[in-house]
Each structure stands twice: as C-alpha cells, then as structure tokens.
C-alpha cells in the first residue's frame, strides 16, 4: 500500500492504493467519487474516461500509482462553478444525448476532449473520436448532435469573446 495524492477537479485528494489499484477503483472506492463508471474489462467501453493532465484516458487502464501527483478531471468536475451544467453537459441535456446515463460520464469526457483538440469536427470525426466509447441506449444519434451543438456553442462563445 502506498499513499497517492491526486488533484481531482482542482481539489487535492489523497488515499491509499496497492500496486495493482486502477485509477477508476481509486476514484470510486477510495475517494468515493462514483461518477466514473466501469462497463467492461477489456478497455473498450469508455464509461471510465477521465482526463489526466489534460489528456483523455481510460481510468480502468491506468494505475492509480501512475497518477500520483497528476491533475485529474472527472465528470464531477465538468459543471460550472455555480453548479449549472457545463457546455458539453448542457448540450447532452438539450439534445437528449443520454438515456440510462451509465455511459454518459465517459461520453461527456470524450467529447470534451474531441472538441478541445478539434473545435469544429465533422460528423465523421465525432463518430471516429467516439471509437473508445460504447453507448447501448441512444444509437449515438443524439450524442453526435450534442457534440455538434456543444461545438457551436463554444464557437459562439469564442466569437463573442473576440
């Protein structure tokens, strides 16, 4: 067992982990942050996607120990400071981009990452960018729309700022 310190959503958190403790288990069991989910054991479903030092990763395929000292952003950190939904979250709400909600945390984190790297993606780029995320409810139709809508909102915000 070793002590791991991570900055999660801007807050310093620490807990203990074994060598084989995965980041997702550390978040869920040690830090009691259950927003990040586990939907498979072959690193494919993406329900566990979080950002580590600004990069999108599958928290089920990263050891907690590897993240000692890292900045981690989870779904719990995606809302605005006043508690209202962030742009990507709001787009999911407006476009009905979620049903059961289980894959949603990973979807939101992946789309935030797609838009950070490519602010105006085509539909094909969005679909390709979601290759690491499985949704069984929505057929992805409204998830893609949510991504497009979030991109438009962000573009509008950038324009307004200029």
């Amino acid at each position: 067992m070793s002590t791991i310190s991570i900055t999660v959503n801007g807050q310093q958190k620490s807990g203990t982990a074994q060598g084989n403790t995965l980041l997702v288990d550390f978040l869920r069991s040690e830090l009691k942050m259950t927003g990040t989910h586990v939907g498979c054991d072959t690193s494919q479903c993406g329900a566990c996607v979080v950002h580590v030092n600004g990069e999108s990763v599958k928290s089920c395929t990263v050891f907690a120990s590897a993240c000692d000292g890292a900045e981690v952003t989870t779904i719990e950190g995606m809302a605005n400071d006043d508690g209202t939904l962030g742009i990507v979250q709001q787009a999911f709400h407006e476009e009905h981009g979620l049903q059961c909600g289980f894959c949603t945390p990973g979807m939101v984190m992946s789309i935030a990452d797609i838009l950070r790297n490519n602010p105006q993606p085509t539909e094909a780029e969005i679909r390709e960018g979601l290759k690491g995320n499985i949704c069984r409810c929505t057929g992805y139709h409204n998830i893609v729309k949510a991504a497009q809508s979030a991109a438009a909102t962000m573009a509008g915000a950038r324009q307004a700022a200029e």
């Binding site: 942050m33 259950t34 927003g35 779904i75 719990e76 979250q89 709400h93 979620l98 909600g101 939101v108």
Partner: peptide, 19 residues
C-alpha cells in the same frame, strides 16, 4: 420536454447499485 433525470447523470451523481 427536456428530461429532469439528466442533471444527476450528467454531473456524475446517478445512484447505480454498485455506487
């Protein structure tokens, strides 16, 4: 009507059995 369920799921506050 937009779903009232969404906010908790979008904020990572769903309460699933394993939670």
């Amino acid at each position: 009507v937009k779903r009232r369920e969404d906010a908790r799921f979008l904020k990572g506050r769903g309460r699933y059995t394993d939670d």
